[in-house]
Design a protein around this nucleic acid. Structure first.
Length: 106
DNA sequence: GGGGTGACGCGTC
DNA sequence: CGACGCGCCACCC
């Protein structure tokens, strides 16, 4: 499956986002190894090879706004999935100050 | 090796 | 608040 080692790194991170939380593209990029991969993260999710195990809908941009080019039928679809996780999406926007995932140091 | 693409981020106007 | 532009980096042809 190696679309690219970086892509897999990104998928690995997205897969770790806990239910009820969201992460930003920049955050995922940083956790994957390089914060400048934000664009690459978006692209990696765009070609998401395994949506069942990779909750790409839990990834939003830095403003908390969902993607409008979501691969399942628009951002509306993404909002539904997020709300199913217990995350209220006000006008397609998530309150990052409350729902942003913070990788805790165990 | 070169060029085009993309679900971003940030500064600036 | 919104629009625009530039930088950033990986992937495919």
């Amino acid at each position: 499956m190696g679309s690219g080692p970086v892509f897999e790194k990104i998928y690995e991170v997205v897969r770790q986002i806990p239910r009820g939380k969201v992460a930003t593209y920049g955050q995922v990029a940083a956790l994957a190894g390089n914060r400048r991969w934000s664009r690459t993260v978006g692209w990696a999710l765009h070609v998401n090879p395994d949506p069942e195990n990779i909750p790409c809908y839990r990834v939003v941009d830095r403003t908390g706004h969902v993607s409008e080019a979501f691969a399942f039928g628009g951002g509306n679809r993404q909002i539904l999935l997020l709300e199913a996780d217990g995350i209220p999406c006000r006008d397609g926007t998530v309150d990052l100050s409350v729902y942003q995932w913070k990788k805790e140091i165990l």
